[in-house]
């Protein structure tokens, strides 16, 4: 089990619910998507004016993107557009929200968790911490960082890149009158939240402000249109390759076979090694550079190996 295919979902049509869980009281939430096996989730959270929380940590990697308002974390103030990636076990300072704040909050490994602490867990991979204002501190870059590429008029700000899985977190914008006449799919799951604007896809129709999707791998999406411009927050769970085509009726099994044919043509030695020599590495082959990658929680999750606590 993983996250169901949620596309499209317009969260503005839904009510917030009280977050009645320790560490989150004083906030309200909407669940945008949730992994049925692990509880990993993407939430829209409304921290009501007066919300406060002591320093603490989560047992899951956590990402946060401020949509409206501001929150004080220690002595820093995170305003609209602020992005955080907090590795599991890394303590963040006390949070105060004097005037209210709305944010996307993502727990990548398990359900939301909070444990009061002013110290990092001894196993925390704190080098993975990212804190940046995506609106103020980063320039837009062309969307052609990936080839084959999206059409011009799609711009990106890369907020986080995972060197092991090549998962990405990014802002993207589509210019007014954006148009891309192809159907795409990827090897990765893809997620998006429309901060502002409406865009259209051939399979799903319009996705307006507040629109959201979590799309598993190999599912057709596009062609693409955007009349008045869109700014959105996006993520992938592993490497994104654009497989473009023009067959609106192909299904995920056929798309995956086509992706394998791509591997056969473009990485012949690797294809031979994986497919025909009978190697059986259900938890991944050895990597002399990243010797411990097989226990990386994100790598386990994207391979569908769900985990159990030690204790």
């Amino acid at each position: 089990m993983a996250r169901p295919h949620i596309e499209p979902f317009v969260e503005l049509n839904e009510d917030f619910k009280k977050f009645q869980v320790s560490g989150f009281r004083g906030s309200h939430y909407k669940t945008l998507s949730l992994d049925l096996a692990t509880g990993a989730c993407t939430l829209k959270v409304r921290f009501d004016g007066g919300f406060s929380r002591k320093p603490g940590l989560s047992y899951s990697d956590m990402e946060l993107f401020v949509l409206t308002g501001s929150m004080k974390v220690g002595k820093e103030v995170y305003r609209e557009g602020h992005y955080l990636h907090v590795p599991a076990g890394m303590a963040i300072k006390a949070i105060d929200v004097p005037d209210g704040c709305e944010a996307l909050v993502m727990y990548n490994d398990s359900e939301p968790s909070f444990e009061e602490s002013d110290k990092n867990h001894q196993l925390a991979l704190k080098e993975g911490y990212v804190s940046v204002n995506a609106y103020a501190d980063m320039p837009w870059a062309p969307g052609n960082v990936v080839q084959p590429s999206v059409a011009s008029g799609c711009l990106l700000k890369l907020l986080r890149y995972d060197p092991l899985s090549e998962a990405m977190t990014f802002l993207y914008t589509l210019s007014p009158e954006f148009e891309q006449n192809n159907i795409s799919y990827h090897d990765c799951a893809e997620e998006s939240y429309h901060i502002w604007g409406t865009s259209w896809m051939l399979q799903f129709g319009d996705l307006p402000t507040g629109g959201y999707f979590w799309r598993p791998p190999y599912i057709n999406h596009g062609s693409f249109r955007c009349k008045k411009g869109t700014i959105a927050f996006g993520r992938t769970d592993s490497k994104l390759h654009n497989y473009f085509h023009f067959n609106p009726w192909s299904n995920p099994d056929e798309n995956m076979l086509r992706a394998a044919a791509h591997l056969y043509r473009q990485r012949p030695q690797m294809f031979q090694w994986v497919a025909t020599e009978g190697h059986n590495h259900p938890h991944g082959p050895m990597d002399f550079e990243h010797k411990d990658y097989q226990s990386d929680r994100h790598i386990l999750d994207i391979h569908g190996h769900h985990h159990h606590h030690d204790d």
Binding site: V21, A88, E111, P112, D292
Partner: peptide
């Protein structure tokens, strides 16, 4: 395999299990 923070998570509380369900 290397132990990770995620492996050290305490069991889900009753209220959290209810939330997940």
């Amino acid at each position: 395999m290397t132990s990770r923070v995620q492996d050290k998570a305490p069991p889900r509380s009753e209220e959290m299990q209810q939330w997940v369900d």
